[in-house]
Write a protein that binds this DNA or RNA. Structure first.
Length: 408
RNA sequence: GCGCAGGUGACAGAGCGGUCAAUUGUACUAGACUGUAAAUCUAGCGCCUUAACGGCUACGAAGGUUCGAAUCCUUCCCUGCGCA
């Protein structure tokens, strides 16, 4: 299913191929477009095909809640999304964080100075564990984490009752959804969690990983997820433990500060099997991708192309800009010089897109999404070519200089 | 001409004696967004000041009452509706 076809000499970057039973092919490094509820916001399946999409990821938790009783007769993600692309499903492990401590702490998975420099505060971390277990963590925290699984009291799906997701249940749902690659149910910790909380959560994730492997009956590829926060010993332990389990691939999850991601990758990747695919969960800015690829990451998924496109942030080789800004009024420049995305090909200028956003034209977010997805897909293709031609380091250096030069 | 109802910051529209430079929404400006609670969110938005719990000018206009007025009184100007 995954095969490495070329390796860079100066870095750990590599080119690989992933195939599925539907005849879908993805060349890695690849950008996995996020379509949480089996659809990428503002995009139709046809749209996605026109921007070079090879891989997509949907979400177990959201689809499970959305589909409700109809899940049992679900036609399968490939049919629903009208694609042969390589499809993944996230396990719901991220929602343990995003609906839980992310809300309580008011943070996202990247960018917050983590607690890793503090001295270990075992009592505080123990308190967090117990509060979460009892489900009395915080008004905004709608998650209750137990050793057996996680309770959610998310009311966004017209259901005020607690719902319970366990490793076994997540796998069962993912088998029903039918993606090519499914993920183990894990716990993504908060950047504000300390050493001990991360240690306990990591052990829980390890236990859940075993349960996921045992629960799976399909032929889908199952990826294990490495956790451990920003702590070197935890991250290494997690990579060793998860890496030794019979997974079909490995994902690196969890939270870290902007600068810390590189360390996390440096700690984990050498301990993972060389020949198996490696996914970096939820990461997707240009710089991060270059860092990840250089360290041997094969696939990335991130909401940035779609979310930021919808919000008016346009990505280019020189970084990103916000077309919503007044400085773009009347601009006749294309979204990016030389871009051949559907929006640019259609002649959409920065000025026109600015006006469309200001006019609240529903098409504005769509054009932005078109451009961004196309951009990241072609950017990945450029990376692959560079690796194959043995000039990835040079390519990376050039890109980083450009970004620096433009203050991105 | 008479009778009602009104005139508030870019617009809409609160406030109806002090805590009002004035609720709120929109518009505008800037910023954020990293396994999607997100076509979303945050902040600013009279002038001066780097900034302010600092100064100044403000609620149609001009006077007045009051320690104090966007809020009360008088006159004037203007707008809408109704009647002539």
């Amino acid at each position: 299913m995954f095969k490495i076809v070329a390796k860079d000499k100066e870095s750990k970057a590599r080119v690989g191929v992933i195939r599925n039973a539907h005849g879908g092919v993805a060349e890695t490094p690849s950008y996995v477009i996020v379509g949480t509820r089996a659809s990428v916001r503002t995009m139709t399946p046809e749209d996605l095909a026109t921007v070079g999409t090879q891989m997509m990821i949907a979400n177990t938790y959201h689809l499970w809640r959305m589909l409700g009783d109809t899940l049992s007769s679900f036609e399968g993600l490939h049919t629903r999304m009208k694609t042969d692309n390589i499809l993944m499903t996230d396990s719901g492990g991220f929602q343990v964080f995003s609906l839980g401590f992310a809300r309580e702490h008011g943070v996202s998975k990247v960018g917050v100075a983590s607690a890793h420099r503090e001295r270990p505060r075992i009592f505080r971390d123990a308190l967090l564990q117990v509060r979460s277990f009892l489900g009395i963590s915080h008004k905004r925290n709608s998650v209750r984490i137990t050793p057996w699984g996680t309770y959610f009291k998310d009311e966004n799906y017209g259901d005020k009752h607690l719902v319970f997701l366990s490793p076994e249940k997540s796998i069962k749902i993912q088998e029903k959804l039918g993606a090519d690659i499914i993920l183990a149910f894990d716990e993504c910790t908060s950047p504000k969690h300390g050493y001990w909380y991360n240690k306990w959560a990591m052990n829980r994730t390890h236990k859940w990983a075993k349960q996921c492997i045992a629960a799976k009956t399909s032929s889908q590829a199952l990826y294990g997820i490495v956790q451990g926060g920003n702590f070197e010993d935890l991250r290494k332990e997690s990579a060793r433990v998860i890496g030794a389990m019979p997974f079909d691939g490995f994902a690196i999850g969890g939270s870290f500060g902007e600068e810390e991601m590189k360390n996390v990758l440096d700690w984990c990747i050498p301990l993972l099997p060389e020949e198996k695919p490696r996914h970096l969960l939820g990461i997707g800015r240009i710089k991060d991708i270059l860092e990840g690829v250089a360290r041997g990451i094969d696939t990335f998924d991130c909401v940035i192309p779609s979310r930021e496109g919808r919000h008016g942030s346009i990505w280019t080789h020189k970084g990103r800009y916000d077309v919503t800004g007044a400085r773009h009024i009347g601009s006749n420049l294309p979204l990016e010089e030389g871009c051949r995305c559907p929006a640019c090909a259609r002649g959409v200028t920065r000025g026109a897109l600015h006006d469309a956003f200001k006019a609240k034209d529903m098409n504005a977010g769509r054009e932005g999404t078109f451009h961004n997805i196309y951009f990241f897909n072609t950017f990945m293709a450029e990376i692959r070519t560079a690796i194959k031609e043995g000039r990835f380091t040079e390519f990376r250096k050039k890109m980083e200089e450009q970004l620096l030069h433009h203050g991105a």
